[in-house]
Design a protein around this nucleic acid. Sequence first.
DNA 1: ATGCATCGCGCG
DNA 2: AAAGCGCGCGATGCAT
Length: 598
Amino acid sequence: MDLITLDFETYYDVQFSLTKLTTMEYVSDERFKVWGVGIKVNDGDTEWFGEDETQDAILAIDWPNVRLVCHNTLFDGYILTQHYGVNPKYYIDTAAISRGLNPGQSSRLKDCAIRAFPNDESMRKGEELANAKGVWDLDPELEEQIASYCIQDVDLTYAIYQQWKSMPKSEMDLIDMTCRMFCEPKLKIDRERLTTYHEQEFNNAERIILGSGIDRKILSSNQQFAEYLYEIGLVPPTKKSPTTGKDIPALGKNDKAFKQMQDMYPQFKHIWDARTAVKSRLTQTRAKRFLSAAWNDDWLPVPLRYYAAHTGRFGGTDKLNMQNLPRGGELRKCIVAPGDDLLFVADLSNIEARMLAWLAGETQLLEQFRAGDDIYSAFASTVYERPINKNDDPVERFVGKTAILGLGYGMGAQKFKDTLAAGAMGPPVHFTLSQAQNVVNTYRSTYRGIPNLWRKLEDLLKQTLHKDNYGNVYGPLTVAANRLCLPNGMALNYHNLRYSSAGLVYDSRNKTEYTYGGRITENVIQALARIIITDSMLRLDKEHDVALTVHDEIIITSTNINPNATMDKIITDMCIPPSWASDIPLDAEGGYAREYSK
DNA sequence: ATGCATCGCGCG
DNA sequence: AAAGCGCGCGATGCAT
């Protein structure tokens, strides 16, 4: 099989660019034009093909026998499949590899080159002196310059791949899968339903905003909306900014004081409704993005960013985050399986709570998971000192749920109290600070292994600062330089980890992050849980099309033949424990339908 | 015009 | 000693 490294150079201008448009909008636009392409076959010399030669050069390649290497393969791969109609056998992306090996650091080609070849000044991306912005027809001189930059980029990409190809095979396969979700879409949109929904949402919001008689600029600005409230004789609530510590208006949808204000002044309902209409436009912008993304016969590419989080979790990209669609919302129902196929959706139940119990060695909790007990009710029973069950005690169970989901990573009494009152996951519950403190204490004393784990993992991370400790093992984790090695060959990286006056800090996205036991524990648990789900995705992708993942959820398209058997197979697969945690009790649940819904 | 920090809000 | 965490997008407000 040939290894082809490739880089497209395409027309762009001020309006028509990837900062303004999504990849789907850009490539499907009338203005889309390939200036040329640089192609390197195996270790041969990179060749430039100009505008008139590109198509022949692309079509001459035996794509079913090609492993493709690009830097940001979602872009070049999408052009190959959607513009030229050719599908490589395997997709490799050096930007994705960079994020896997160096999460939280820039994955631009320029920065990758420095990281891959720190001591070789010849391996540097040149400054792009040519300004080709807005030039539709390149003159020979400009084309010459672009061609030379392009060849240089292809050569760098190839060299970086050679340097980093020792990346675990399973992770390479995940990068390939991520590219296929985008370049070879598995999902479709229900265009009619989506169009109707978009118009309806838009008209509804407009009616409410216009009806209020307030300028939408005022409605959408916190500052200006606060001033407006003053003018009509109301005192806008304030709160302390969690980042700057300054007093800021508390006018968010979930700000308690603002909610109370709305309840207190029902005569201003038109104002509250208009504020919501202006602030909650996610569904409208998203519907619009879906419609333009699915330009090609309603096929919907799924843009996922491999290793977006330093824990390995995927993220959204390309102005379209498929991982935060409102639950039970119309948007999800507008996403469908193609033809007569069905969409299978399954998620790993309480995966993080299970992983936490397992790593902390909390035998009692593990036994409860193994027995299929309702963990939230079980903990609530301890708190309330009486048997709690889902049907009779929904409020008490919600307290148990909030505790299990939050307190495992060190949440304190004040935050627990606020979280309960906000009622984000259930009915709002109002506790005094001392009642909240009691629950926190009960949690920490009931599951002693968990606060113990916070201390152990903080100590383990500190060990990464001294090379005497490299190789030390804790469960599935191994100590190395500034990182905790994971059982899949990857690592939880803490770039430039060091002590500061604030404590333990590290660099992420040019920001200094402060960390501590509870937070490290959360990172470790998230990283380990992510391995369980991606292991399953890799197995399932052999038989079905994995179309999307949302952290603990896998979305698969498959035929409508024996759907119950397919569903069972998926669930069974997701519950296979990894070799490094063969005794972890896993559980999964799911369903299938034509649409994406649960 | 464009970049950056901050906030709000959607998901896990 | 104590501290829930992980994302991306869109809008605002301010700096360049």
